[in-house]
Simulated scan of single mutants.
Amino acid sequence: MVLDRRTLLRAALGGAVVSAYGTEPALAGGRGNRRTVFVAGDSTAATYATADVPRAGWGQALPVFLRPDIAVENAALSGASSKSFADLGRLDLILAAIRPGDVLLISFGHNDEKAEDPARYTEPWTTFQDYLRLYLDGARARRARPILVTPVERRRFRTDGTPYLSHGEYPDSMRALAEATRTPLIDLTARSFALWSELGPEPTKDYFLWLDPGEMPNYPDGVADNTHFQAHGAIEVARLVAAAGAGIPGRDRRALHDPSIPDDVLAWPPTRPAES
């Protein structure tokens, strides 16, 4: 089954793949009157290009689980923290486009943890919450609905095969902020950790970007990445987000209950949209 998925993915190298579920990316300024889900996040959520296949982010896969009348604007940026995303003006771009009734999913933590990088680092109980409030307040000022999403858990297993958490106090900080500000929360940390724990060390390699040398043309030397996803993992993490996100409009229950969504349901644009 893994080989079948990757054979299909090779076809994506020639251009975008259009799925049976209609996952063509939404185009800024071309969404008409459709309600829009905006994604503010990091590389685990970002949309990747044909040169990155089969790497994918959960924001890239989110349209799989939404009806076609709902647009998705995935603004997630590789390497971003809650601080750097705002400082680079990326939050301002979202707030300029967001409209009443739209939804803003906010998911950071991976790069906020990098104490060696002052451009990205935030402290979990002070500056992390301060920056997240900019997203919450900005969305609400425009009568849009913010939803906090705790960071997806990495693939972390001890030598005896038991999993362990890797995000320190950042998920707890986001949970506390959600409660204090009465903001809906999707606890993706807990949900993804439960999934990785159930699957175990070896099966999770088919979710994360683990490839043997020569297996995929874009990674001729192979790769062993315990943070980022290949298509299958991105789809399943997007399923976790959509299933837990009661406030996300237009959830497609048929897709949510379909256990066999193929990896080639995703579309890879020619360039990474958030970096173009």
Rank of each mutant, 00 (worst) to 15 (best):
M1N: 12
L3T: 15
R6N: 08
R6V: 04
R6I: 09
T7L: 14
R10V: 05
A12S: 14
A12M: 08
G14F: 10
V17L: 15
S19F: 02
Y21S: 12
G22F: 07
T23V: 15
A28L: 15
G29R: 13
G30N: 12
R34C: 06
T36V: 14
V37A: 06
V37H: 10
V37W: 10
D42M: 05
D42L: 00
S43I: 02
A46I: 02
A46S: 12
D52C: 05
A56R: 07
Q60R: 07
L62I: 12
P63E: 04
V64Y: 05
N74T: 06
S78Q: 12
A80K: 07
S84N: 11
F85I: 09
D87H: 12
L88I: 00
L88W: 14
G89W: 12
G89T: 13
R90P: 00
L91P: 10
I94V: 15
A96I: 04
A96Q: 15
A96K: 15
A97P: 03
R99Y: 11
G101P: 10
V103N: 05
L104K: 11
L105S: 04
S107F: 00
F108W: 04
N111M: 06
E113P: 00
E113T: 09
P118Y: 04
A119N: 11
A119K: 14
E123S: 14
P124R: 13
P124Q: 08
D130I: 03
D130H: 13
D130L: 06
L134W: 11
L136S: 07
G138F: 03
A139L: 09
A141E: 15
R143M: 10
A144D: 09
P146S: 08
L148C: 05
T150Q: 01
V152K: 04
R154D: 01
R156V: 05
R156L: 11
R158Y: 14
S166D: 12
S166H: 07
H167M: 12
G168Q: 01
M174E: 09
R175K: 14
R175P: 00
A176D: 08
A176G: 03
A176C: 03
A178E: 02
E179N: 03
A180W: 05
R182N: 13
P184M: 10
D187M: 09
D187N: 13
L188T: 11
R191Y: 08
L195Q: 08
E198D: 14
P201D: 07
P203K: 09
T204H: 06
D206M: 10
Y207F: 15
F208D: 02
L211P: 00
D212G: 01
G214V: 04
M216Y: 06
N218E: 03
N218S: 06
V223D: 00
N226T: 09
T227S: 13
H228N: 11
F229T: 08
A231L: 05
A234C: 07
E236L: 15
V237A: 07
V241W: 03
V241R: 01
A242G: 01
A242M: 02
A244I: 04
A244N: 02
G245A: 00
A246M: 01
A246F: 06
A246Q: 10
I248T: 00
G250R: 05
G250E: 04
L256S: 08
P259A: 00
S260L: 13
P262I: 00
V265N: 04
A267S: 14
P270A: 07
P270I: 01
T271Q: 13
P273T: 02
E275D: 11
S276M: 06
